[in-house]
Design a protein around this nucleic acid. Structure first.
Lengths: 416, 416
DNA sequence: CAACATTGTTAGGCGACTGAACGAAGTAAG
DNA sequence: CTTACTTCGTTCAGTCGCCTAACAATGTTG
C-alpha cells in the first residue's frame, strides 16, 4: 500500500500538468528532481519537458553545481511566455489585471462598476478595455490565453451566467461568458471571487504541489475558496466554502441569503461599518469599502472604538478559519480580498491565535496563515489564474457527469 | 470548456474503477448506459466489462425490455464474488463484520474491548476471531480481500500505527497494521472511524457516483468522514472532518484534544450522559454508550429531562452539520455511529430543520439527510469498504509525495 | 419477410508511459 | 593526461489504455 508510485496506467491526469505544476511550485528545478517529485520516469520527464520547452513555456536557466557527476540543467517557467486577463466584476468597480505565467501582474487598472447599465453595454466596455490595454502593454495577442471573469455570489450555471445577489439581479439571465467570448474573441471562464482568489494564490504564491490550501476572502461578503492538490474543490454546485453563511445565532438578523445570523451579518465589512455608524464614528460615507478602509486606518492608529469593532469581526473570522482548518485539514490559509488588503494585519494575529490552540491536527503539522501579497486585486488575479490553469494544466473535471438512470439515494425524507 | 468528455489521455484513474463504481451505484445497468455515465466509448466499456466478468466481479442478469432494437443485457455486481473483513476497535468493544462486494454484512459479531491488554495479545485474538468466522460462514479464503481496521482518533502514520486518545495511549507506538497483516496473512488497512464510516455508507448505500457525501459520526466522540466522487477526502494529515473539535465557546471546558469548548464537549454522548447524571436521572451506569442508549429510550418515551438534554445536543450537531454542508457543498449527509443507532430519530429532524433554512445552496439543490441503515456497526462496515475499494477500485493516492527541494510557502509567521 | 433500430464486439491505430541501454558531462585518483 | 566512477539526461522498442470505425447480433415494425 505505498502511496507515491502510480504504477502502470494509474494515470497522472496527464503528466504534463503534474510537471508544470511542480516547476511552478519550485521556481527552479532540474529534470531529476522532477522525476522524484512527480513519480514519473526520467524518460517521461525528458520528453514532456522537451515539449514544454518547444512550446516556450519552460526555459533552461543555467546549471546547478555538480554533485559528483554531470551537473543538473535547471528549468524555469518563462513568465512572459503566456498571459491571461482577469476581470473582477463588483458593485464597487471593475478591476482588471493582466497576469503572466508566474501569476505576476503585468498590468492592473480599475474602472467604475456596472451599476444598473445594460449588460450588453458593460460587455462592450470590457472588451474595449481589454483590447486597448493588451495593445498598450505589448502582450503578444497570439499568447494571450483567455479571460477569467470573477464576480461575487454563486454561479447559476457553470458556463454563461453569473448570479450576484443582492445587487446585479438583472444579470441573472444574461449569458455573460458567451457574450464576452464573442466580443473579445478569447476563451472566457467564469467563477466566484473566493474560489478564483484561492487559485490565484496557488498559482502566484509558490504554494507547494499537493498542498491543501484555502483562501478566506473578504470583499463585500465573506467566503472561501478551496484548493486541493492544485485543483479547485467545488462541491456539488460550485458553492463550497460558503463559510460566511454559517449561522452563529439562529435568532440573529436576517441575511440576504435567506437565513438568519450568518457570520457575514456580524463580521462582514458592511456590518462593521454599520456598527461604526451607529456608534457615531465619522466616516467618508461614500462606499462600504472606503468606510471600512477608513475604519481600519483608525484602528491601526489605535483608536479605541474601531479597534473594538474590528476585533469583534476578527474573532468571528477566526472562528470561520478554525472551521475551515479543521474540516479540511489545511496546510495553508490565505487572507485575501479588498477588506484584508486594508485590515489584514489586524485580523492575522487573531486568526493565528485561534488556530494555535484550536487546530485539531496541530500536533502533526502547522496551518500557515498569511495575508495575500495582492489582496486588493486577488479576485482578478484569480480570474487570470483560472485561465492559466485551464489552458496550460487542465485538470480532470471535478465531477463526472452523472446519467439520470443512476439509482437514487435510498429515500430518507431529505431537506425541503 | 465542456466538462464531461475526458479526451485522449485525460486518464480516468483507470476506467475500471469508474465502471465498477457506476455499476455499484446503479445496482443494475447495461453497457450502453455505462458508456453514457462514464463518458467512455462503447468499445472500452465492452472490454472492461468483459474483464470484470472474467474476474467474477460482475454478472449478467437478464435483459431489459427492447426499446426498438436489441435489448440491453443487464449487469450487476456479484455480491458474493469477494468479501472483506472490517474490525472496529473501540474502548467499549471490538466489532467485527464480514461484508461482501455490495457492502452487505454477511457476518457480524462483538467481543470485549482490548482494555489494557498487550497489543500483541489483542492482535492474536483478532486473527483467531477472523479465521474462525471466515471458516464458519463459508467465505472462500481465496476471495477474501483483506482486513480494514478502524479506530477512533487520528492516525499517527498512514501505515502501521494508530493513535486513539484519550484511551489506548499504549498503542501509539505499536505497528498495528503490520502485526495484523502478519497474523492474518491478508492486506490490512487502517483508518479513522468517521472516515471509514463515510466510505462504508458510500459503498453500501447506493450513493450515486460523483456525489459529495459526508458521514457525521457519533460514537464516543464526534467526527465526520468526507467522500468526494467516491474518494475519501483526507486533507493534509488524514484529519479532515474533525468537526467535533470546532470551538463553540473559547472559555468552555477543557477537551482532551487540548483545546477548550469543542462541540464534542457539549454535545458528545459523554457530555450528555454526564449532564443527565448531574440532573439526577437514573441510568444503568455501566458504560457511556449504554447510558446514552437508556437516555435515548427515555427521550423517545417523552420524558422531559432526557428530551431536553438530547435536544441541546442535537442543536449542536445541527450546527456542525450546517458547517459541513456549507463548507463542502454536500449532496448527502448520513448520521451514523453507535449513538445515532440509538438516538438518530431524535437528531434527524433537528438537523433537517437547520439545513432547510441554513444551507447556502438550497436554491440549487438539496442536502439529503439520512440515518445509516447500519449505524451501530458502521465503522466496521467502513473498514471492510476501505479494503473493497483499495483492492477493486483503487483511486489515485490523494496526495502526491512532495520532494523536499520544493519551494516553501513564502514565509508568513505561521502557527505554533 | 425485409428494413430499421439498438446493443455490443472486434480490429487497427494513436499516444502516454515504461524499462533498459546508452550518450554526455562532470569529479576523483594515479 | 588517462582511467574509473558518478550523475544527468536521451533514445528506442515495447506495453497498455483508450479511441475510431467497421461489423455482428438481436430485437421491433411494416
Amino acid at each position: 500500500m505505498n502511496a507515491g508510485t502510480p504504477g502502470p496506467g494509474a494515470a497522472h491526469t496527464s503528466s504534463r500538468s503534474a510537471i508544470l505544476d511542480v516547476i511552478r511550485a519550485a521556481g527552479t528545478i532540474s529534470r531529476v528532481e522532477l522525476t522524484r517529485a512527480t513519480g514519473l520516469t526520467a524518460a517521461t520527464v525528458s520528453t514532456v519537458v522537451r515539449r514544454l520547452i518547444d512550446e516556450g513555456l519552460v526555459v533552461e536557466a543555467g546549471r546547478a553545481e555538480s554533485t559528483g557527476g554531470k551537473p543538473r540543467m535547471l528549468l524555469q517557467l518563462d513568465p512572459a511566455a503566456r498571459h491571461a486577463v482577469g476581470v473582477h466584476l463588483d458593485h464597487a468597480g471593475i478591476t482588471y489585471v493582466i497576469a503572466n505565467l508566474g501569476g505576476q501582474v503585468v498590468a492592473r487598472w480599475r474602472r467604475p462598476g456596472a451599476g444598473a447599465d445594460d449588460p450588453r453595454d458593460v460587455v462592450a466596455r470590457i472588451a474595449a478595455e481589454i483590447s486597448a490595454t493588451v495593445a498598450r502593454v505589448g502582450v503578444d495577442p497570439e499568447h494571450l490565453l483567455g479571460v477569467g471573469v470573477v464576480s461575487p455570489g454563486p454561479l447559476a450555471t457553470a458556463t454563461g451566467m453569473t448570479l450576484a445577489p443582492p445587487v446585479m439581479q438583472h444579470w441573472a439571465e444574461f449569458p455573460l461568458a458567451d457574450a464576452i467570448e464573442d466580443a473579445v474573441g478569447l476563451p472566457v471562464l467564469l467563477d466566484n471571487d473566493a474560489t478564483a482568489s484561492a487559485l490565484g494564490e496557488y498559482w502566484s504564491g509558490g504554494v507547494p504541489t499537493g498542498a491543501v490550501c484555502a483562501a478566506l476572502y473578504m470583499g463585500t461578503g465573506i467566503g472561501a475558496g478551496i484548493i486541493v492538490d492544485g485543483t479547485v474543490y467545488r462541491g456539488r454546485s460550485s458553492n463550497a466554502g460558503e463559510i460566511g453563511h454559517v449561522c452563529v445565532d439562529v435568532d440573529g438578523p436576517q441575511c440576504w441569503c435567506g437565513s438568519r445570523g450568518c457570520i457575514e451579518v456580524f463580521a462582514g465589512p458592511g456590518a462593521v461599518v454599520a456598527r461604526a455608524a451607529e456608534a457615531g464614528i465619522a466616516l467618508p460615507g461614500r462606499s462600504v469599502s472606503e468606510d471600512f478602509a477608513a475604519l481600519a486606518r483608525a484602528a491601526a492608529r489605535g483608536e479605541e472604538a474601531p479597534v473594538r469593532l474590528l476585533g469583534d469581526s476578527a474573532r468571528y473570522l477566526a472562528a470561520a478559519a478554525q472551521v475551515l482548518a479543521n474540516v479540511l485539514d489545511l496546510d495553508l490559509l490565505v487572507l485575501t480580498g479588498a477588506s484584508f488588503a486594508h485590515a489584514g494585519s489586524l485580523y492575522l494575529p487573531v486568526v493565528q491565535e485561534r488556530l494555535s490552540g484550536g487546530f485539531f491536527a496541530r500536533g502533526t503539522h502547522d496551518v500557515r496563515v498569511t495575508i495575500s501579497s495582492h489582496a486588493s486585486e486577488a479576485a482578478a488575479v484569480g480570474g487570470a489564474a483560472l485561465v492559466l490553469q485551464a489552458e496550460l494544466a487542465p485538470r480532470a473535471a471535478g465531477l463526472r457527469m452523472v446519467v439520470d438512470t443512476l439509482t437514487e439515494v435510498p429515500a430518507g425524507p431529505g431537506v425541503a
